[in-house]
């Protein structure tokens, strides 16, 4: 077989494996959230379907798949159908540029990243900014005032917090001197925890800004105003049913995983182990290849846990508080972080 064919086949294999793992992770994140919020509220959460309720995602999926797909009569039909596709499509795209393990080549193809792109970080930001249309269009095309209000809130919130999010990342880019996600992780992989951007790189402020903005970007508590059920029924997806609703639902949880993965890559050393530099010769070749994947997944899991914990703990912001916090606190803080990081790097080189 020639090189090109091998490349195509291995890439398709990577895409298939990553997509299946990602979608399974999305399904089980829902279960994790229901279980954890249950325990926080002193109840069990789902426990009937399978051992410990582990088959619950399967049952949920089957239920949503078998439900009738209602099409309300007054909707703007093409956009109504397009909106969930945009939302889910964008949510599933970012994972393609993320490195989830060491650069280990098989037949010359990097097996632990689907696409290594020079401007990978910008691709993720770009895909996120296109994903806003899914929510904006769903609210408008539904022809329902609750949906429209929900999507207007969501769009305004995402535009506002995207600025702080984009600026918080610049400190990391300045330190690395590259927009390539593999370079960003490699720089953090040399001395364990001490070389991670959040700690050794002293980007802890940027990490805080990123984390807060990420909660707003994914419409999660305490910034879940777009779907504040006491005011807006269900917000932008009020009129959606069956698989179209499921697509929004999946997009939301996929975005949670994406944001956690990006935070891991940028601030917590990606796949690098917190103390791996102390044992450089640990394990055989297989352990050497798979242990980084374990660390990557473990770090993302910590983020998902944090998300659920925050949801179980904090009340919702008021809308003016949300906007004031984003524009008057996070944005100036992010700009200050860029200036300070730039000055320090200019002096110490």
């Amino acid at each position: 077989m020639n090189q090109f064919l091998i490349f195509i086949l291995l890439t398709l294999l990577k895409i298939a494996v990553v997509t299946v793992v990602f979608l399974t992770a999305v399904a089980y994140t829902v279960l994790l959230e229901r279980k954890l919020v249950g325990r926080i509220q002193n109840r069990w959460g789902p426990s009937r379907v399978g051992p410990f309720g582990l088959m619950q995602p399967l049952a949920d999926g089957l239920k949503l798949f078998l439900k009738e797909d209602l099409m309300p009569s007054a909707v703007e039909r093409p956009l109504f159908i397009l909106a969930p596709i945009i939302a889910l499509g964008c949510a599933l795209t970012s994972i393609a540029v993320m490195p989830y393990g060491r650069d280990i080549r098989w037949h010359g193809v990097d097996m632990f990243q689907i696409a290594n792109i020079n401007v990978g970080l910008l691709v993720i930001l770009g895909v996120t900014s296109i994903g806003v249309y899914g929510i904006a269009l769903s609210g408008w095309s539904s022809n329902n005032k609750y949906s429209l209000l929900g999507s207007l809130r969501s769009t305004a919130q995402m535009i506002s917090y995207e600025l702080a999010l984009g600026l918080s990342v610049i400190g990391v880019v300045l330190r690395t001197g590259s927009l390539n996600l593999r370079d960003i992780v490699n720089l953090q992989a040399t001395h364990g925890v001490l070389s991670w951007n959040a700690f050794g790189g002293v980007q802890i402020v940027a990490f805080f800004i990123y984390l807060t903005a990420a909660f707003a970007e994914t419409n999660r508590t305490p910034f879940d105003l777009p779907e504040a059920e006491s005011e807006l029924t269900a917000g932008y997806h009020t009129e959606y049913s069956s698989m179209k609703f499921a697509m929004f639902f999946m997009a939301e949880y996929a975005n949670m995983i994406n944001v956690g993965a990006v935070a891991t890559l940028l601030f917590l050393g990606g796949w690098s182990s917190p103390f791996g530099h102390l044992f450089p010769d640990f394990g055989g070749p297989i352990v050497h290849a798979l242990l980084p994947v374990f660390w990557f997944v473990a770090k993302i899991f910590c983020f998902l846990f944090l998300y659920v914990w925050v949801r179980g703990t904090l009340p919702r912001f008021r809308y003016d508080q949300l906007m004031g916090f984003g524009w008057k606190f996070l944005l100036p803080l992010a700009i200050a972080n860029v200036v300070v990081t730039g000055l320090v790097l200019a002096v110490h080189g």
Binding site: V123, G126, S129, I130, A136, G139, S151, L152, I159, E162
Partner: peptide
Amino acid sequence: AEFLALAQIIVYSGAIMVLFVFVIML
């Protein structure tokens, strides 16, 4: 021009057009 391409997506397709759509919806 890889940076320009992505800046075009983020700034024009993303930010500016979202504002257009936002105003039309509003």
